[in-house]
Structure formats: C-alpha cells, structure tokens
Design a protein around this nucleic acid. Structure first.
Lengths: 165, 165
DNA sequence: TTAGATAGTTGTGAAAAGCAATCAATGCAC
DNA sequence: GTGCATTGATTGCTTTTCACAACTATCTAA
C-alpha cells in the first residue's frame, strides 16, 4: 500500500528466528493466518455477548436483522456452509431467543426468520463492536488507504467466491 | 488494485439478492470469508494426501522440513496455537510417519523434530500443490499486481500479529 | 537449594465442518 | 392427474479444531 511504487517497504516475515518467507510465500498462508488473528480478536471483543465464538452466528444475526423473513438456505449461501450446519446455528440462536422462526407463507417447506427485540438490541451491540474493531484493530492501514484496501478485499472476495460456486 | 487511482472498479457485493455490503463492510468479514474459500480449495487439492484437512499440519510439515531439529514450541509460536493443540498435531504426524521426534541434546525437556524420508517426499508434493494454487486460484490478480498484493498481505499480517503477541 | 519459569502431556468440553440419509413440499414432464 | 426429480430442512454421525486447566519433568537464577 502507501504509494504503489515504493520498493523499500518489502517486509521480511520472521517469527522466532524462523524466516517463514522462504517457507511459503503463499497468499493462502497469509489469508489463513490473518483469519486466525482477526477471529480471535473479534471473539475477545464479543466474549461478553451470548453470540460470541464462531463465525456463523454474527453474520446470521445481522442478516436476519437486515432482511426480515430471510430463509435458512439463503443464509447458508452467504455463509458458504451446508444446510445442516446453518440449521444448527439457527437452532441455537432460536433457543437463546435472538431470532424467531416462522413457516414461510408461500412455501410450506421453507422457514422465514425474524429478529426478536432482544436480537435487534444484540445486533446493535455487535455492529458497534465491529465498527470499533475496524478503527482500532486495523489502525495500521492509513485512512487514505482504507478505501483502496477495502476495494481490493471485495474484488478478491468476489473473484474467489466465483471459483467456489 | 490495477491502477490505484481508478475509482470506477468499486464492486458491489451481492449474494442471492442480498446486498451484504450494507450489512457489514468490514475488513474482518472479508478476511474470514476468504479464509473459508481458500481453505476449502486447499483441502480439495490436498485431499489425496495423508496430510489433508486442517491448517496446522501443512505448516508444521514444511517447517520441520526446512528447519531440522525445530521444537514444538517454535511451531506453536508460528501457528499461533497453544502447546496442547500443537502437540496433538505433531502426535498424529509422528504416528503417520512423516516426522520423527527426538529428545533435544541440550535440553531434556524439549524435543527436536526431524522430517522422515516419506515426510520430505510429501512436503515436495505439498509445495507443488501450493504453487499450483498460487497460479490457478489467484489468477485474478494480474501478474504485475502480485508483488504489491503480497507486500500488502505481509505487512497486514505482521501488523496484526504484533497486536496479538 | 529452593522458587519460578519453561517444555510438553493429558483430560475435558464446546464448537466447527462435512457427509449420508431421511422427510415433506414443490414443480415439472408426460 | 400421476410420477419423479428438485428443493428446504432436519437428524445422526464422524473428524477436527481449539482453548482451558492440571500435571510432570527439567532448567535457571537467586
């Protein structure tokens, strides 16, 4: 980042005296490692909430909050999980009373999910925590670079998702 | 990416008719989602190998291959896992005969890990698969942008790791 | 020599993640 | 309409992850 032509800011990745650069200078390794760090940080920030731990629950909560009547299969699509996994996430969230299940009016097989009052309050807290993480945790990205970084992330995400489908 | 000043390539992330942009335009969400896609792709590519599945084993194998005599605690440091988790990964790899455990000569508490012949052959295969994934899976990154993308990933990784330690 | 730090193991528990099988409702072909 | 493939969701099962707590053995430094 910073200025794209700067050749001097090529970092050497070394941990514990081990040059892991030599080992696997692979995109995948960095993405996977960053995921671990980000997820842990987010888990800690959410530790006091009933929704803590696990990648699926947060997205599910916010999706139901934004799209009343959304179906489990749509959530599964966004989460890139199979329906059993998604169903179990929903089970737990219904049990803890943050979302509510109804039979879809137009398709008796399907369900329509709705946020509860408690769930909506929770989602507000979650959004605030995410905002905080954005500013605090990613403060190493210069404000003027954020937009570009985000654009790049989105593009990469879309391209990669396309490969998966 | 491409040219950094291009404002028109701002993608709208929409899945299943759901604009997830509005929902959570958060770095963490994209990183976590990309991790899922990359990991799955890698799992599939490695499916025929005994080391398939799980993020820790591949890194462990390559580390032991590159650093004969490396200790479990060092691997734990790189993996950002606790020692029990790392120990169990090593257990399984020793059991399947790809690495070998010895008592460290200078410290009787510690272990020294070495690659076996089979393990080295395996690591060669793994490296080839990673190389393939680099070129095939990340083909959406223009060759001239790769270096910059990688530099950015490394910087982000290092900064984020620093926050964790 | 005793205290505390370090290296690793074992036990436990919660959760993630994928697969196969099942069931009910839907929609299409004929 | 009847039959059949498809879709939406659930249940059961297995494997793996991942963190915490408790423990033993060894090393180091006061």
């Amino acid at each position: 980042m910073t200025s794209p032509g700067a050749p001097q800011d090529d970092p050497i990745v070394e941990i514990c005296g081990l040059k892991i650069d030599v080992l696997e200078g692979a995109f995948s390794w960095y993405i996977r490692s960053m995921d671990a760090v980000v997820s842990r940080d987010l888990d800690r920030r959410m530790a006091h909430l009933e929704i803590a731990k696990g990648k699926g629950k947060i997205t599910t909560l916010l999706l139901v909050d934004d799209y009343p009547g959304i179906r489990p299969s749509q959530i599964a699509e966004v989460l890139m999980r199979d329906r059993p996994a998604t169903g179990r996430i929903i089970d737990r969230m219904v049990a803890s009373g943050v979302i509510r299940r109804e039979a879809a009016s137009d398709d008796l097989r399907a369900q329509a999910l709705f946020i509860t009052e408690r769930g909506h309050a929770l989602s507000q807290e979650v959004r605030e925590i995410i905002r905080q993480q954005e500013t605090e945790f990613f403060d190493f990205i210069e404000p003027e670079d954020r937009e570009q970084f985000m654009r790049m992330l989105k593009r990469a995400y879309l391209k990669m998702r396309a490969k998966w489908d």
